[in-house]
């Protein structure tokens, strides 16, 4: 008796050609050069401690296994350390593949709340890590301006960042509620 089930069999219907094309169209032609040697996975610090398998991810992106790729939490275990890409004997731009897959995942709604919160901080303050009272005091104590000369000090500059996030639709992507300045309830 075979251990294979229909579910585990891949056939042409499982493949989403548009998903593969998205990588090629984005200039990541090198996804096609991968010969699955596994140098990437062997080099990956995240793969040593999580289910993240970068060699498999590259293969799935090339095959067009869109749903498997974008619904997998492991996609977000990459720290973008580039060790895989540096060592790849086929010069595949692996980190670009990871980021492209994440872009497609995010646009399909796969976004973690803490990441959406970082987006929210940038829309509200211009900074992913905004100033706090302790640091204001520290800055003043060492003779720096209490607020750094960034969007923190220049409200019109913050407005520009907000206009950009609106123009690209980033505010809608992360579910930003302009009325409350918070994330819309999920």
């Amino acid at each position: 008796m075979t251990l294979l089930t229909d579910k585990e069999l891949l056939n042409m219907d499982s493949l989403d050609k548009d998903f593969t094309a998205a990588f090629i169209d984005a200039g990541i032609e090198s996804v096609q050069h991968c010969f699955q040697c596994g140098t990437c996975s062997g080099s990956c610090p995240s793969g040593r401690r999580t289910p993240y398998k970068v060699r498999q991810l590259v293969r799935k992106c090339l095959l067009g296994l869109k749903d498997e790729v974008i619904s997998d939490d492991a996609l977000w275990m990459c720290t973008t350390c580039y060790t895989c890409q540096e060592r790849c004997p086929r010069s595949v731009v692996i980190v670009d593949i990871v980021k492209k897959a994440r872009n497609i995942a995010a646009h399909a709604g796969y976004m973690a709340k803490p990441h959406r919160m970082t987006g929210l901080f940038v829309i509200n303050t211009g900074h992913g890590v905004p100033i706090n009272p302790v640091t204001k005091e520290l800055r003043a104590r060492v003779g720096l301006s209490e607020l750094p000369p960034t969007t923190h000090m220049f409200p019109e500059a913050l407005k520009e960042v907000q206009t950009i996030c609106k123009a690209t639709g980033f505010d809608e992507l992360i579910g930003y509620d302009e009325e409350t300045g918070e994330l819309k309830p999920e």
């Binding site: 977000w76 973008t80 980021k99 492209k100 994440r102 872009n103 995010a106 646009h107 976004m111 990441h115 970082t118 987006g119 940038v122 211009g126 900074h127 992913g128 890590v129 000369p149 960034t150 969007t151 000090m153 220049f154 019109e156 500059a157 913050l158 520009e160 960042v161 950009i164 996030c165 690209t168 639709g169 980033f170 992507l173 992360i174």
Partner: peptide, 21 residues
């Protein structure tokens, strides 16, 4: 000083979510 500069923006979130932004 680069007056009015913002977050770079954070590559892990912005680069992962939306390349255009």
């Amino acid at each position: 000083d680069m007056e009015g500069a913002s977050c770079c923006p954070a590559p892990g979130v912005f680069g992962s979510f939306d390349e255009k932004t």
